[in-house]
Amino acid sequence: MKPRLILASVILPLGLIIAAVPPNTTKAYKLTAEQLLNEVRENLQFIHPDQVADMLIQKDPSLQLIDVRSKAEFEKFSLPGAINVPLENLLSEDYEYDINQDVKLNVFYSNGSTDANEAWMITRQLGYKNNYVLQGGLNYWVETIMNPEKPASTSPNEEIAKYDFRKAAGSALGGGGGDIEPAATELDAPAAAPPVIKNKKKKRVQGGC
């Protein structure tokens, strides 16, 4: 038999099969259930409002707040510089560029933390990097940054410094912070340690003749 005929009798049936089956569009999940459970248990996804406030005040360009509430709620109130990605549109192609990236620190937030956590869990499973959740959501944000509770005068200095920072931040970000001493913004960085930003680039496999 001629090589051409052998080739044809192998390639053509295979080609017919591949033409007939639908393309595989499922995306493999990148984490095992166990790995994800560990991350959830250790609350690795949370970023404290103090840190977000600090980044906002310093106009840190790497911060990207993502509001996962509905459009109506987003228009009513949103954090400065936030973009609106309603949870039901999370997987829409329009937003993939914002969510699947390795440059910015994405912080999901909603009113509480449930919706934001759901968004985080889905994107984490897809293997997207640099997505986090605002701890406690907007409710906790208002509680800590916008209307911080004055600690008792016998509190440790750290507590008072934290309070001063929150008061200053709240007022800078449009809350009812009240009187601020000028020194307040120069206080120590907030308690929450900055998360380690993994800068793993997705390398594409290069090829050529």
Partner: peptide
């Protein structure tokens, strides 16, 4: 898949 099949036919 369909394109690959057509290219295979054209190639042969």
């Amino acid at each position: 898949g369909l394109l690959a099949f057509l290219i295979a036919i054209v190639a042969i």
